[in-house]
Amino acid sequence: MASFLQISDDEKGHDLDLFCIPRHYESDLDKVIIPHGLIMDRTERLARDIIRDMGGHHIVALCVLKGGYKFFADLLDYIKVLNHNSDKSVPLTVDFIRAKSYCNDKSTNSVKVIGGDELSNLAGKDIVETGRTMQTLLSLLSECNPKMVKVVSLLVKRTPRSSGYRPDYIGFEVPDAFLVGYALDYNEYFRDLSHICILNEEAKEKYKM
């Protein structure tokens, strides 16, 4: 079972005034729930775990855009540092896929995958994947006969809507709230926010499509 850092349902979070928040978002957020520094420290540990488990394999790191790009880049930076400074290193190549499943704050029942025409190149490879809408993507990947697939997700949400799927590597288990920041968006806003924050109800209306 994957280990993770749990953010409890009654977590009070942190006052926005304690952090550097872009002025254009100050009125849109309830609180900071995971500060950027904590995200980075946890990501560094995930990188170490991946190197420990998969050292010696050639890994194709597949990023799920757009929400996964910051986590993906930071995770790969930590893996690169470990490759440079460790006896066990991982040959690494990267690829990208885009998946879209949200409209406003509601998850749709369909996942739109963009960029899957190159997945045939993954046959026989070890794949580490980052992102959210995993089951559709895992089904697509299985058709390409990869040697092994491991999923890394920064966040797993506790929600009654969950299918029960759990990634192989988890950063944080979080409450069932709509989270933005660190490349997670609400209708394309808030990707430029460094911390992971809870979006308030007024902002959901303000940025509604």
Rank of each mutant, 00 (worst) to 15 (best):
G181S: 09
L65Y: 07
V152I: 13
I127D: 10
V32P: 01
I39G: 02
K88I: 14
F178P: 08
L29T: 04
L38Q: 10
A183G: 14
G116N: 14
S8P: 06
E188K: 12
Y207P: 08
L154I: 09
D49K: 13
T159H: 03
Y189T: 11
M209A: 12
V32Q: 03
K147N: 15
I170A: 04
G115R: 03
R191D: 14
L62S: 08
L76K: 07
A123Y: 10
L82H: 12
I196H: 01
Y25K: 02
V113M: 06
E201I: 00
K206G: 00
A177V: 13
S163P: 03
C103H: 11
I39N: 04
I51D: 11
V94N: 15
K80R: 15
D192N: 12
P167I: 01
S163E: 01
P160S: 07
Q6F: 06
G56N: 00
C103T: 15
L155G: 06
L141W: 04
K88T: 14
L122N: 04
H58G: 06
A61G: 08
G68E: 11
S120L: 11
P35R: 06
D10I: 03
D41T: 10
D126V: 12
P175V: 05
F178V: 05
L140T: 06
N104I: 00
L179C: 13
Y69S: 06
I50S: 05
A61N: 07
T43G: 04
N145G: 01
L141Q: 03
L138P: 02
I7V: 12
I196K: 03
D176L: 08
P35M: 14
G56I: 03
P167V: 04
V152C: 15
L137V: 12
